[in-house]
Computed example of a mutant assay.
Amino acid sequence: MGHSITELASLFEAGPVAVLTGAGISTDSGIPDYRGEGSPPRNPMSISQFTMDPQYRRRFWAGARVGSSRFSSVKPNAGHIALAHLEAAGRSNGVITQNVDGLHRRAGSRTVVELHGSGGTIRCTNCDFRGNRDEVLGWFDALNPGYAERHAGAQIAPDGDAAVDEIDSVEVPVCPVCGGMLRPDVVYFGETVPTKVFAAAEVLLNGASALILVGTSLAVNTGVRLVHRAERRGIPVAVINRGPTAADTRADVRLEGGTTEILTELVARLR
């Protein structure tokens, strides 16, 4: 049986809550979900594929460059903005996110723990070089003139990349310092969330009166670990999602529906 906005709002009476978000909060910004309702089957790239297979790296950089043209127009939606309002009003102590799109910060959220890193930062696997994604994609253009324009119609995919073909001749940018392999500063499948990052998420959770899950099916173990910690602390867990999640049977409050609509209504109710 579903719950109401009133029941969700009541969880804020004991103090600020912690919020964990997933890809479902960004779908209304035009970024597809990996596993949400209606999403096509798609397996995210693993770290071993990226580091061991030159074809995967070609596909990644080509897709990242082609997708960047459309991803640059992606903006935070009303759901992101609602969470920023909750923090500004003292109703939330921050956002823990599984997303790498940076939209929470752009929406005005001040305390953001990015469990899986930031897609906007590129780092070298061999030295301390860190660069801006747009800058590195400019190097891709210099190495592959006209490629992005020829593939401008490719379909955008999760994380802002695009489904491209014709990658055999793609030249991959390398580290300008040591010539090493460049990669996004994100947690790929096969990697673990850095200890300091998870500890920062625990700090938010330990200072919260409830944990609200927004737009995540909890298919990734890190989110499940946070739910287990909330349960051990004895604080309520709420779920806002379109489609089933791994926490549905354990949630104290469960709302089925779009995150944008529900969060917007929640902010209005709490005011």
Rank of each mutant, 00 (worst) to 15 (best):
D134H: 11
S69K: 11
S68K: 11
W139P: 00
R65K: 15
W139S: 01
L86C: 01
I96S: 12
G120K: 12
H85E: 15
S69Q: 14
V112E: 01
D101M: 07
R91A: 02
G79R: 02
A89F: 09
K75C: 13
N126F: 05
P76Y: 00
G138W: 03
N77S: 12
L103K: 00
A84K: 02
N132G: 02
S72R: 15
D101I: 04
R133Y: 09
S118C: 01
D128Y: 13
N126I: 05
S72T: 03
G90M: 08
N132D: 15
I96D: 07
A82F: 11
R105I: 02
N144D: 15
D128M: 12
F71I: 03
C124F: 03
D134E: 14
C127M: 11
C124T: 00
G108P: 13
A88I: 06
E114F: 00
S109Y: 10
S72M: 09
A142L: 13
L83M: 15
S68M: 09
H116T: 05
F129E: 00
I81M: 08
V112Q: 08
V136Y: 01
A142M: 12
N93K: 06
S118I: 00
A142F: 06
C127Y: 06
R91W: 07
V112D: 02
P145D: 10
S73M: 11
S73H: 04
G131F: 02
G90N: 12
A107S: 15
P76T: 00
S109C: 14
R130D: 05
G79T: 06
W139F: 09
A142E: 15
G90H: 13
G131C: 06
E87V: 10
F140A: 09
V136H: 04
R105Y: 11
N77K: 11
G146W: 09
R133P: 01
R110H: 11
G67P: 04
V74C: 07
A84E: 13
L115W: 13
D134N: 06
S73Q: 07
V113C: 10
H116Q: 02
Q98M: 03
G108D: 13
R91K: 15
T125D: 01
R130T: 11
G108S: 12
N99F: 08
G119F: 08
V100N: 03
C124S: 02
N126L: 11
R70H: 10
S118W: 04
I96T: 12
G119Q: 05
G146E: 13
V66C: 05
H116C: 05
R105L: 09
C127N: 06
A84W: 13
S73Y: 07
C124N: 02
H104K: 08
R133C: 13
E114L: 04
A107D: 00
S92C: 14
R130F: 01
C127F: 09
T111P: 04
H80L: 03
N93C: 07
L137W: 10
P145I: 09
D128P: 14
L103D: 04
E114C: 04
